[in-house]
């Protein structure tokens, strides 16, 4: 890996260089009822709109690679005959300016199932390959348990990752495009002092984690605790509203619906992100529901994240960003759920 340092004010220049493309980044979205600032990802036209010291965005960057709704194909119907038109909805590259490590890792996890397994999904792949990602370091928030999930630092899946050394950015460069770009701003090789500052920043960050999830033997414990009353406790609270899945950076489940147009000459096939917590998730034609209770659906969500995905890909599908717990009105958070299932509440 190649490392560089540059002065903070050079970042505006970097943005300027990239502004010929569509740039997306964290922006301030007002305050919540307690006066806490809110952030979300949005298209950015001016460098000053970027809130690079953001805590955590309400929604994950997922929608830029997995839109909540997407037309998979359209049909032209002419009496008995019909033709299918497929459009992967990938049009142009996108610059992501300021993504935290958890979200970069989330994309890496999505890659495993959507791009690197059998039947790679072109709708996702096309968008993912056309992301230019500038990662940025963060300070752990109370809900963050990324360190438990091993996703507190990003090793790959970005173009350049920046760490603020106070006045200077420390840049890890992973792609030729990023190297070329940094060549156009004023950059230096890191000095011994920069390196010391970088290590200091990393160590400082690690001290700030408060939330954690015990993952040792979790796959086995989940299996053993399939009938645990803890699931019923959380199931009773669960609103079955799908909010956790929608704010999650790695939830990718979906449903497909087809519709005939009013003119009976066109039809479309639409994909919408779904959530395994929704009542109809496992309902089959004829009405049988394989998971009729909130508890069984909530349990399934944890099984998929912390057991099934591990079996398939040797790592959990959860990045520990804590968004689901923050967004859940019923206050269902992974650290608490897992702790209760492990029996040490």
């Amino acid at each position: 890996m190649i490392f560089k340092v540059f002065k903070n004010q050079e970042l505006a220049r970097l943005h300027e260089l990239l502004a010929v493309n569509i740039v997306v980044g964290p922006v301030a979205k007002g305050n919540d009822r307690n006066g806490k600032p809110l952030y979300d990802f949005d298209v950015v036209y001016d460098f000053n709109e970027l809130a690079l010291d953001y805590t955590q965005t309400v929604h994950s960057p997922k929608r830029f690679v997995l839109p909540y709704q997407e037309t998979l194909s359209t049909f032209a119907v002419n009496r008995k005959d019909w033709e299918k038109h497929v459009d992967f909805n990938v049009y142009r590259p996108l610059v992501f300016f300021g993504m935290h490590a958890c979200d970069i890792n989330a994309l890496n996890k999505l890659d495993l199932v959507l791009a690197q397994s059998t039947y790679p999904n072109p709708y996702y792949m096309g968008k993912r390959k056309n992301l230019f990602i500038i990662g940025i370091d963060c300070k752990p928030e109370p809900q963050c348990f990324c360190r438990s999930m091993g996703t507190d630092s990003a090793i790959h899946g970005f173009d350049v990752f920046l760490t603020d050394l106070g006045g200077k950015y420390f840049a890890e460069i992973l792609s030729a495009t990023a190297f070329d770009l940094l060549g156009q701003i004023s950059c230096q090789d890191p000095s011994a002092k920069d390196l010391a500052l970088y290590k200091q920043a990393t160590n400082g960050k690690n001290k700030h984690y408060t939330a954690q999830v015990e993952t040792s033997d979790l796959t086995k414990i989940l299996d053993l605790e399939f009938e645990s009353p803890a699931w019923d406790y959380w199931g009773e609270k669960c609103l079955s509203c799908g909010t956790c899945a929608n704010v999650c950076p790695t939830c990718y489940c979906y449903g497909v619906e087809e519709h005939v147009d009013l003119d009976l000459q066109h039809a479309s096939k639409t994909k919408s992100l779904h959530s395994c917590n929704l009542i109809d998730f496992a309902k089959v034609a004829g009405g049988h529901n394989f998971r009729p209770t909130s508890a069984s659906r909530l349990k399934y969500r944890y099984y998929h994240k912390h057991r099934g995905f591990v079996e398939a890909f040797e790592e959990s599908l959860c990045v520990g960003c804590g968004r689901c717990g923050t967004a859940c009105l019923a206050d269902i958070t992974p650290p608490e759920v897992i702790a209760s299932v492990r029996g040490k509440e």
């Binding site: 919540d32 509203c241 909010t243």
Partner: peptide
């Protein structure tokens, strides 16, 4: 749809109104 409005609200990338008081 059998699910609640929250599902569509999040898909519209709204900030939860409860958070906004």
């Amino acid at each position: 749809p059998e699910y609640p409005v929250c599902m569509e609200c999040k898909a519209n990338e709204n900030i939860c109104l409860f958070e906004l008081g």
